[in-house]
Each structure stands twice: as C-alpha cells, then as structure tokens.
Design a binder for these strands. Structure first.
Length: 296
DNA sequence: CGCTTTTGACCTGCGC
DNA sequence: GCGCAGGTCAAAAGCG
C-alpha cells in the first residue's frame, strides 16, 4: 500500500500533493491529473461528451484539479472536494484468476448452479478471487443506497474499522450479472455516502427500479449521468463542487470519486474504447443508461 | 409465495 | 503462525 502522500506520479512523473490527492492504499490507484483521469475512463470505454442538460449549467472553463483516492477520501470531501474520482488496479497483487468466470471454481452456485456439498459447514476453497475494476462515487446524501437504475440485492453488511457506519454489500439481481456494489458512509463526513461499483454488467437491459417506469426516471441516474459527463479537463474541483451544489439539494448528488482499473487493464484496455463494446456496457452502464453516453 | 433484508458465521488476505 | 479486518455465504425473518 502506498501511504506516501507526496510521491511522484507513476504515470506523469509529477509530484502528487496530499491535499489534492486521495489515495486508496493498495486497492486504488489515483489520478493525478485530468489527462490521466480521462485516459483511465477511456480505457474503460467511457468517453464523455457534451454535457447533458443539467451539466449545461456548469461552467466548463476551468480544469478539474487532480484528485486521487484513498483513506483520505473523507477529508478530501471536507476539504470541499466532493467531486473526485478514484481508480483502482484492484487486482493489483493477489488476484490472478479470471474474473467471476473462474469464481465458479468456488462460487458457481452464485449464478444459479448447485451449491457444493458442505459437510456440516466446510466452505469451498478455491483459487483467489479476482477483483474487477472498481469505481467509487461520493455522494452527499442522507440515503445510503441510492437508486441508480439497476436492481440490487443486499448480501451482506459489515462494520468497518475506524468508522461508526457499517458497510453494505449489494449484488446486481440479474443472476448472470456479477456486478457488485459497496455502500458506506464516510466516517469523517456522515453526510457523504461512498458507493463503490465493482465489475461490469453483462446485460444491456437496465433493470428498472421498482416504482419507476424507466431508469431514466431514476433520480440517481439522472443526477449521476450528468456527473459522469463531466470532462475533467474542464472543471476545477472547487468550481464543479460549487456548481453541483448549486444545482439543487433535494436530490442526492452522486459524484464520481474514483475509478479503479487494474494495471493490466489500464494498459490493455485502450482498444476497448475503440471497439465499442462490452466495456461500454459495463460499469458505466451500471449507473448511466447507454443512451446517455452514446452521444458520440 | 417469492423476493429482499438481516445477521452471525465462515473464509481469505495481509501485516506483524 | 496468529490475529485482524474485509468480504461472502446462507438460514431465517420480514414484507408486499
């Protein structure tokens, strides 16, 4: 894990300063400038274009300052940066088996298979799990589980060290989909909810949330989409924050906190963005209807 | 009745 | 090797 807050950026060689860079030890890499931020997003097949309606209200003249992610996320928020984005080479060290595909070795039943025999209660021991790319969002909201257009099933909750708030674990209800989501409230800023998405949806259709006729009517999706549409190069964190806050306070305002991409993905995914694709339907699809980002 | 949430137990990785 | 913390499982309870 990197606890060094002032270090040379591995990609640009620039020195990252702790006051603007949040790093997630180990799990997360960080963006140290907007260019990289964009690059990583592109690597995930995300390309942001002309801002949707809500974003039209935001001035796009100043550059978004670099933000990383880490244990200091909360402090970053308090520092006025509720707009941040984190990335994580999550599979960094240990995960070396194919994504959920091979999770079958130990967890096939998750997707409908028959649970392995468990005498009294021996749990399967399979190869290490591989972590999928993750993206985290920080949202100023009193609601923990924000609606995002997909349906999730909660499968666990754990108390988190150094935080009075528990962390909840959700899984996409689509049996074939392995996307997971973690929701936790910042211990340093209880008004902030940190939502971390992991994996990519394997289904194109968005599961409409109950009570909504379409995902586009999801307040969360509506709010988030604009956030994702931000072109980092165009906004300073403070300006963006100010603008976002000015948009309205009645709805949760999810903000891209981080994107985690595995190192190997970071280097090999570029083609994904050009192929169009699954990646495109993945994490982004998790939170933003394809149509909204297809504006390209 | 089917789906979701709750919750305690278990598994796994990692640091010491 | 041990202990801790994060993550996941799965039975039971709750809800519409």
């Amino acid at each position: 894990m990197d606890d060094d807050t002032n270090k040379v950026d591995p990609i640009t060689g620039e020195l990252s300063t702790s006051d603007v860079t949040w790093t997630f030890p180990g799990d997360y890499s960080y963006f140290s400038n907007d260019v990289r931020e964009n690059n990583v997003l592109n690597e995930f097949g995300w390309s942001f274009h002309p801002p949707p309606p809500v974003f039209d209200q935001i001035d796009s003249n100043s550059p978004l300052q670099e933000v990383g992610v880490g244990d200091h996320v909360a402090s970053g928020v308090q520092g006025g940066g509720d707009v941040s984005m984190m990335s994580n080479p999550s599979s960094s060290n240990s995960e070396d088996r194919p994504a959920e595909a091979s999770s079958t070795a130990s967890g096939d039943f998750i997707s409908g298979g028959v649970p392995p025999e468990k005498p009294g209660k021996v749990k399967k021991k399979g190869p290490k799990r591989i972590r999928q790319p993750r993206f985290a969002f920080m949202t100023k909201s009193e609601i923990d589980h924000l609606e995002d257009g997909y349906r999730w099933r909660k499968y666990g909750q754990k108390a988190v060290k150094n935080s009075p708030f528990p962390r909840s674990y959700y899984r996409c209800t689509n049996s074939k989909c392995t996307v997971k989501k973690r929701v936790e409230r910042s211990s340093e800023d209880p008004t902030t909810v940190i939502t971390t998405y992991e994996g990519q949806h394997c289904h194109h259709t968005v599961g409409f949330p109950r009570g909504l006729s379409s995902p586009y009517e999801s307040p969360y999706a509506r709010q988030l989409a604009p956030s994702l549409a931000v072109q980092p190069v165009n906004y300073s964190r403070q300006q963006f924050t100010d603008q976002v806050h000015a948009i309205g306070s009645s709805q949760p305002r999810p903000q891209l906190v981080s994107s985690e991409s595995e190192d190997h993905l970071s280097h090999k995914l570029p083609q994904a963005s050009t192929q169009g694709s699954n990646v495109d339907q993945g994490l982004l699809g998790d939170i933003v209807p394809p149509r909204m980002r297809r504006h390209q």
